[in-house]
Design a protein around this nucleic acid. Structure first.
Length: 462
RNA sequence: UCCCCGAUAGCUCAGCCGGUAGAGCAGGUGGCUGUUAACCACCGAGUCGCAGGUUCGAGUCCUGCUCGGGGAGCCA
């Protein structure tokens, strides 16, 4: 092929190649033919926009007949500037070659499809405008996250996917096993864990946090960014069984210092999107959520709201409205409460800190009041909880007591306790749900449409 | 796991008080025009999600199941 010789569509429509001959390798999105002139729009994945290729006269290009939406093509032609058209540049074709015919039953058409339909053809939906934009945006935002932390002296740590910690405090786990379960079940035998691959129960990770904590006591500032697995039976528009989470962990950092980092980080992601991804954000603003850009712009310019859990409860009590779930100190905040705080009361991202000890995980640092812990959730309109984090309990005795109270196997977590035994330091960390961040930035309302291959209960195709 | 809504052509949908199936788009054929979600004409296309039930008769009413959507819980 002409892999190295070809010109990407992105570079053609930006005008870089005007008056030059180019080779385009891509897929037909739409074709319009008439007697004297014909048009084929070609997309090669490098941009939302298509290259407009002109065939004049169409009779000179018999292959045109075979082109339907989806056909893969090789085109040679000259880039010309045009006036008074939607597109600023076109390609006057001199050669046309069909690389791969497209069967007429191709499901994608030159019109809008519902996201529900596209989920059923997740192998083809990357070729649509929306998913092209989403996937390019995911890539850019991933890079941005790495850049942000690398620039600040954080190290990227690859924490394990397979773990034997069965209670990281974050929900149900997928068990990993090589035992022949069907045979064992057929013979009604007992499972012998000693025969299993790791000779003990193993799971897919629900968080890299515990390993992150220990790495930060060696490297200072670290972050993880990888897949995370939750086996809950969640059927909602904001939960996945497999999702990507970004988790920094900072030694010698308390909660208040971390809040400064979180706010700066989230604003950085927003600024990056607005400034460096105009094509994507323009698309979202036009087709997905009108007014998205304005909302994001206002977030960058204002401070996030900050309340303690106790203050939040007071606000909810005074809200003067009936909630389905009762508001009371000691109860966890329900979705409706979080939505009220973020969408109605503050109308911007809000930090909620210092939750009751009983409703939070064992590793969170206990406050002097002995009733609350140094936890933080960041709630945003539309998505809900986008960040969850805490200052970690760095005092050996407190941590051990918390673990016993919450019924953890001390023996299994001895390595986690050791960190507090050998030169312990205050440290803090949080987790950012990558897909939820994409939702927030794009305005996409279903998390299954912001990840290429969504996994959720009863669904792991493609 | 619980609550609500839905499933009709490849896609998006209409189909009234139960009477035997329709439109746009897509595909095919022809025409026309520097077209741009192109346009015009014609053509083919359906086990009305599945299984029962009520009825002379069910896309339409009832029950169960499957799948999809929205919400709750869990959380990122």
């Amino acid at each position: 092929m002409d892999y190295f010789a070809r010109t990407r569509v992105r570079d053609i429509i930006s005008g870089q190649k005007v008056d030059q001959e180019v080779i385009i390798l891509g897929w037909a999105r739409t074709k319009r033919l008439s007697k004297n002139v014909g048009f084929v729009e070609i997309n090669d994945g490098s941009s939302l926009h298509n290259a407009h290729v002109v065939f004049s006269p169409p009779a000179d290009f018999p292959e045109l007949e075979r082109i339907i939406t989806g056909t893969s093509l090789r085109v040679v032609g000259k880039v010309v500037e045009v006036k008074g058209r939607e597109q600023a540049y076109e390609v006057q074709a001199s050669q046309l070659e069909i690389v791969g015919d497209c069967s007429p039953d191709y499901p994608l058409q030159k019109k809008r499809h519902t996201f529900e339909f596209l989920r059923d053809i997740a192998h083809l939906r990357p070729r649509t405008n929306t998913f092209g934009v989403i996937n390019r945006f995911r890539s850019k935002l991933s890079h941005c996250i790495h850049q942000y932390y690398q620039d600040r002296g954080f190290y990227y740590i690859h924490t394990p996917i397979i773990t034997t910690s069965d209670c990281e405090g974050a929900g149900d786990l997928f068990q990993v096993t090589t035992l022949p379960l069907q045979e064992i079940a057929a013979r009604a035998q007992e499972l012998d864990l000693d025969e299993d691959f790791f000779a003990e129960k193993a799971y897919l990770t629900v968080s890299g946090q515990l390993e992150g904590e220990l790495m930060c006591t060696a490297l200072g500032d670290i972050y993880t960014f990888g897949p995370t697995f939750r086996a809950e039976q969640s059927y909602t528009s904001r939960h996945l069984s497999e999702f990507w989470m970004m988790e920094p962990e900072m030694a010698f950092c308390d909660l208040d210092e971390m809040l400064i980092l979180i706010e700066d980080f989230l604003k950085h992601l927003i600024s990056f999107s607005l400034e460096e991804c105009p094509e994507e954000m323009g698309f979202f603003n036009k087709w997905i959520d009108k007014g998205r850009q304005k909302v994001l712009q206002s977030i960058v310019e204002a401070d996030f709201a900050r309340v303690t859990y106790t203050e939040a409860v007071e606000i909810l009590k005074k809200a003067g409205r009936e909630f389905e779930f009762p508001v009371g100190w000691g109860n966890d905040l329900q979705s409706e409460h979080e939505r009220f705080l973020a969408e109605e009361y503050f109308q911007k991202p809000v930090f909620v800190t210092d939750y009751p000890r009983e409703i939070k995980a064992f590793y969170m640092r206990v406050n002097d009041d002995e009733k609350t812990v140094r936890a933080v959730d960041v709630l945003v309109p539309l998505v809900g909880e986008i960040v969850g984090g805490s200052q970690r309990e760095e005092r050996y005795d407190y941590l051990k007591e918390n673990m016993i109270q919450q019924g953890l196997d001390i023996e299994q977590y001895s390595w986690f306790l050791d960190i507090r035994k050998y030169g312990t330091v205050p440290h803090s960390g949080f987790g950012l749900g990558f897909e939820r961040m994409i939702m927030y930035l794009s305005g996409m309302s279903n998390i299954r449409d912001v990840i290429p291959f969504p996994r959720f209960p009863r669904s792991a195709r493609f």
